[in-house]
Amino acid sequence: MEIRTAPFAHDAKENESTMKLTLPSDIYYVCWRDMKRFLSQKSRILMTLVQPLIWLVLMGNMMSGMTNNPYGARMLGVKNYIDFMTPGIMIMTALFSGTFCGFSLVWDRRFGFLNKMLAAPISRMAIPVGKMTATSLQITLQVIIIGIIALVMGVTFSSGVFGFLLIAIIAGIFSFAMAGVSLSIAVFFKTLEGLHPILNFLTMPLMFMSNAIFPKAAMPNWMKIISDWNPLTYAITPMRTLVVEGWVLEKIIPGLVITIGFAFVMVLISTWQFNRSIA
């Protein structure tokens, strides 16, 4: 028996030494799993391609009349409506997919996987942050695909290749933060049916009370005020500037800083909410 227990003692010692800084590796594994799940569900990948295509073709054609009217074109600040619309579709994808992140937590809770993760020596913070990271990677990929489709449809990105990448990164950061919002709410729900209406209720006003699909110039005053407090407005302003105007830094930096700040705050809030829910 002495001989048999020896390797275990050795393992325990080894485990202790690796116990120090495990947060990055824990986040990696939580994120890896969610990415695997994403990539092995073909319907999800297909929809991420089809949906923006439909939006761009449909909305781009339908609304092109708006830019034929010189007043409309001035209000939108673009020559073609599709230039205005492309970052709008990108942010919409980021908003919706980001907000769905909470479902995966409810699902894991339901089928017992959450308890399995909690019984393992992984950092508690890694669970929400890993899920948020996976969401944001997925959306960065989707936004790049939307961008390529838009390029094919004749949209020009004034800021070039690096601007194109920065657009995808901003969308990724924004969805990271939205995933955090979604998780912070989802921690209190035991069923998907209970969570769904709440998240729907959240996305619609965020979408329409921003300048994502309507130009701010066309908004009534009360809506402008809401739009000014809407984090989505701050993510889309630099994205749209990079598409339409190019590297106009005074329009890009404030939105970028606020979006990064939003993401950081959501890391803290979602971790706090998550820890509260498992205590």
Binding site: T18, Y28, Y29, W32, S40, F111, N115, A120, P121, I122
Partner: peptide, 22 residues
């Protein structure tokens, strides 16, 4: 609860579990 991820393969489930235990 049979808490294994059924979208992953058997080997991937073990790999994930090994990662959780560093």
């Amino acid at each position: 609860d049979l808490a294994i991820d059924d979208i992953l393969t058997g080997r991937e489930n073990l790999y994930l579990q090994a990662g959780f235990y560093h």
